[in-house]
Structure formats: C-alpha cells, structure tokens
Design a binder for these strands. Sequence first.
DNA 1: TATTACTACACAAACGTTTGTGTAGCTGAT
DNA 2: ATCAGCTACACAAACGTTTGTGTAGTAATA
Lengths: 340, 340
Amino acid sequence: MADLARELGVSMTTISRALSDHHSIGAATKQRVLKLAKKLNYQPNHLAAALRKGQSRLLGVVVPYIEGKFFPSVIQGIEQAASKAGFSVIVCQSHEDVQLERRNVETLLNAQVAGVLVSLARNTQDFYHFDKVRSRGVPLVFFDRIPPTEQVNSVVLNDREGALQATRHLLEQGCRRIAHLAGPAHLNIYQHRRQGYLDALAAYGIAPDESLIITSDMTTDDGARAMRQLLALPEPIDAVFAAGDSAILGALQVLKGQGIRVPQDIALAGFSNEGFTAITEPQLTSVDQRCEEMGEAAVRLFLELSAAPDAPFVQRQVVLQPELFVRESSRQGVLSLGGR
Amino acid sequence: MADLARELGVSMTTISRALSDHHSIGAATKQRVLKLAKKLNYQPNHLAAALRKGQSRLLGVVVPYIEGKFFPSVIQGIEQAASKAGFSVIVCQSHEDVQLERRNVETLLNAQVAGVLVSLARNTQDFYHFDKVRSRGVPLVFFDRIPPTEQVNSVVLNDREGALQATRHLLEQGCRRIAHLAGPAHLNIYQHRRQGYLDALAAYGIAPDESLIITSDMTTDDGARAMRQLLALPEPIDAVFAAGDSAILGALQVLKGQGIRVPQDIALAGFSNEGFTAITEPQLTSVDQRCEEMGEAAVRLFLELSAAPDAPFVQRQVVLQPELFVRESSRQGVLSLGGR
DNA sequence: TATTACTACACAAACGTTTGTGTAGCTGAT
DNA sequence: ATCAGCTACACAAACGTTTGTGTAGTAATA
C-alpha cells in the first residue's frame, strides 16, 4: 500500500478507502488506485485488516467427522456459499468428542474467525463452551445436530417429515408391521425421525409396538444385530425403517444371508441417501437430506447475523424439506410381483 | 498482555518472552507470568502474532474435491498430525479446475498460512502459481497428484507397486487376458498404475495388447462404457484391472446386467479401496492407498521444511507402500469352483 | 450572507503481538 | 584490573491495515 501511495502521490488512507470503495473517495481516484493496484499486483494482507478490524474473513466449521456423504456435502455447500461471499472456510472435526469440540471452538476463536458453524458431537450435553463465542459477538449457527433446549440460530432438516414420508411410503406399499431402527434419543435428529415414524403409523391407525423399535448407535453392525433381533420375534414384521443408511445396510445383509427376499418378504427404507444406497442389491430406498442446501443455508444465516452485529438476539431456524428417494428395496411393483 | 504486564510490574516484552519460553527470562518470572495468564484466562491473539512474524499457525490444503473416501481420509490424517503440532487446517477444493486452484493458492497465501499442501487438479498442466508460494518461503508439499517434472517435495503412494500387486494377483488366479481401465496419462498416479499393470504382465511374459487398455476419466459411466467396449472384442477377456474403484464398479454393473459371472467368467480388481467395495456383490478386490498415512506424512514433511526455513532446497519424496485387499471379485477359491 | 452539507483527501493512532538493541549487574577467566 | 559472556529485563519500532478526526474547498440551502 505504501508503494501505491507513493506512486500516486496520495496518502495510504486514500488507497485503503479507494480499495474498500469508501464514499469519500472520488471516482477518478478510485479508478487510478485500482488500476495501479492491479498493475503492481498488490495483494492485500488480510491478517492486518483482520487485526485492525478485530474480524477476519475466515469462517470456522466444527463437525463430528468428515466421512460418509453427509458432512462432506454440507461442507461443500458451506464452502461454495462462503467463497461466494469472500470467506474462507476452516474445518475442524470433533471426532464425536465434547472435549475436542471445546478445543476446536477455542482454536477458531483464537484464529479470530468471523463466525462459527457447528454440528454437535454425539455426546455433547452441555453448551457452556459456546457462551464465549456469543460473548465475543461472533455469529454462531448450528446445523443438523443442534442443542435441544438452547435459544440458538440453526438450520435443520425436517427430520420428522422425512421419516413420516418414508414410513408412509412403506404403509402405502401395504406393509403394516413396520419396525424402526432408532438412534440415540438425545440427538434432536433421531428424536424427530422416531416421531415421524410414529406419526405415520398413527395416521394409519396403527398402535406403536415398542418391541419393534430398537435404539442403537446406528452402525452397520448395530443394524445387523437389530435385524436378527427382529427376525426372532414371534409375529413376523414386513418392513424396516431405519434412521440411518448404515443400519439399514446391516439389516439388508442379514436378510440376504438368511435368504429372506427384499422387498417381497420385508421392505426396507433408510435415511441419508448415502452413495451406497444405489449400489446395493436391491437398491435402498432412502430419505435425502439436502446436504448442500443445508451448508448454503447455514452460511446465509451467518451472513445475516454478521450484517447486523449488535441487533438484539432473535432466534432463527431454517427448516429444509427432505426428499424421499424410492428404490427397489421398497418398490410397489416388485411387491405385487412378489405375490403377497 | 498489557494487563499481565501491569499486574506483575514488568514490561510486555517480558510477558511475551515468558510465554514463548525465551531463554532470557528467569524461571521464576516465567512461572509467575504463566500462572497469572491462566488466572486471567489470557487468550493470545494469534492474528497479531502472525502479522508480526509474517507467519501463522494455519496450514493450507488444496484438494480436487472432498467426496469419496480418499481425500476426506487424507485430510483426516493431515488434521490429526497438524493439530498435534499446534496447527489448524484450512481446506480448499479446486473442483478439478486449475483456475480455482490458482485462486485457492492466492487465498491461502493471503491468509498467511505457514505451509501449503496440494494435490493437483486433473487439468493442471503448468505450475507457475506455485512459484509465488516458494518465493515467499512458504513450505510447499504435494501429495498423491504431483507435478510430473518439477523439483518438488512430495508424498505419494507407490502406485506402480499397487497396480503390479493387483495385476499379479489376477495372473496368479489364472487370468491371462487382463484388460486395464486407465486414467488420464498426464497424472502421475495413473501413469504409474498403468506401468505397474504392464510390468506385471511382462513378468509373466505376456505382451501388452493396446486394445485391452482403455483410457478415460474413470467415472462409473466411463467404466461401464469401457466394459461394453471390451465385451465387444473378438477374443474374450478374463479379467479387468481398473485404476479406480468407480470405474470397476461401472464394469461390474455391466457384467451383471449381461449375466456374466464375476469372478468365474471375468475377474475384477480396482484401486482405492473405496467403502463400497465391501458392499457390492461380489465384493470388489482393490488396492488400499494408506490415505491417513499420506496425510500424516505430508504434515511431517511440512514440519521438517519449516524447521529449517532457508536451508538449500533438497527434493524430498516419501513413498508409501499400498496394500492389496483381495475380495470375492477375484478370489481363487471361487474361480476354481467356477470350473474354468 | 451565513449556514449546512458534501466531496476529497491527509494525519496519526490504533489493533496485539514480536524482536533488535540497549543497559545493568554478575561471574569467571585472563 | 580488564574483558568476555552470561542473566534478566525494558524501550520502542515494527508488521499492514483501518478509521476517527481534521481541513480545506465547493455547492446547495436558508
């Protein structure tokens, strides 16, 4: 900047204001500055600016992990929206551990991020570590896995609706004894998916049967275990809706191992629309989570918050609508061909 | 820091040096400073330090994308090793686009990252945008997809060895007409995999047949297309080795669609050991890439480089050994059962 | 004519650290 | 007695921006 100022015979103030399009700089001067900046290949030092302004162009993201489809896709969406707004993204993983989550939040604050986007770790039950974020006036947005009670800004999928769609779909296929593989109840998403399952049953006048609802951590193994348990029931089931695709995959593997036909004998539906749902045989019906939209929405929310830094807190929540992808594991055509 | 200095009646210099364990500060003073810092919950402003030192505790990473298994896992490894060394990671995607890659590198430099780790975009053919990184004295490490000719520090998989193992395995199963689905030749990895394939054939005294080598972008569709092309050959093949798992998946789908038995009629092997290789039927044999080790190695290399900032440039390369995961799509037991 | 308002710019302080240089007292070797 | 080499600390200048305040000159309004 000093070079530019010297070259043009103006002060650094003028340079700075010209570059940031300040109103008190004449259009002609702005042009001259911009042109010379390009010519000298001037690279602004964001660090200095951040230091002075107490705020950087970095956006901090904390996720439990970045495997599978969901979180990478959300991050993808975040990245895209953020870079459009001139922000860079810094991603941390909590590895499903509150302690690491706390450390991550500290790290991000120390990096003077402009905002923090968080999806909670599985075992996060208290939320004091986020107070510091708020008290520093840094916009805070939760996505997907959000604190159950706290007053926070968040963007979530309508998990209940997704589960309801999937379960209703199974009902429409003629299934009546539908089991549910549920996830840890203290995570909002699993709670809502379970509720959607129950609501769909209720709409068909079916009383919920607790022995058909199996709660676990939703891994493939958990799904397999649960499926075996369900097969051992005296009265056979005719469908399974799982709150996650890994679990339903485990279930599918058990069924195939025992020669039980899917969907003819038992229909399956999962949640997340993971990549492998289109690879298994039969392909798995699943609820798509609008991952990228979720990322974009989170960034949008952040931008709104940071546009009005000290506006009084108003809780905002964006709710995305899921979409059911019907595949072979539950398809009607196949069911009727199965001659049930 | 000013608070600390005032409280203890010393200068800020002393505080700063005490905190960074400078030799010219007495042990007693250091203790006092550290204790008070903890008590007042002093949070260092890394930005200011970075500005002053011209270097932050951020590590920049540029990858083509973060889907599938490979890059997320590498990033995982990077993250782990970096945080152990007190660095945070900032990830950018080039989306396989040189232009974006260039922009990403600029962004990272502007963020004053301490180092840059890069895996090249598919269409990156010139490397001027990395000169700026070097000229600023910022350590630069390439991983997996590296510039073919340039003198650079890098960590790569022994792709040739992996391909050789896979092809030799197919040969050991009795296959003799083995096709190869190759990737873009200007990317080192695909070149080496192709070479490994050729070397394995040579070791068995088999002359390469150009009509059996099909080059593409290695998507699932590409794999399917290639498989159809191979099936149309006058002389039938008995195995396919693909330089990527997506392509071999496409091939598998075509084979199953046509009722051709795998591995009895045609054996398959892929590369990457993607998650879905254990889900398909039959499960797919594939070469594992040691993703996390690659990330760790890249960080280690970076740390070495930044430990000796202005040492004369010595090209360093870490070569990781791949591991072949043999699964049903190529298993001997099944082959012999197939009665060939 | 006086007041206000706007344009166009410069001065200099601030952001929170790090670090080269300076100083003073002390120890041990020459 | 002198010098070198240590320890232990303070001063003040940097790092590259942003921004409140000040100062002119010009135009519009009262």
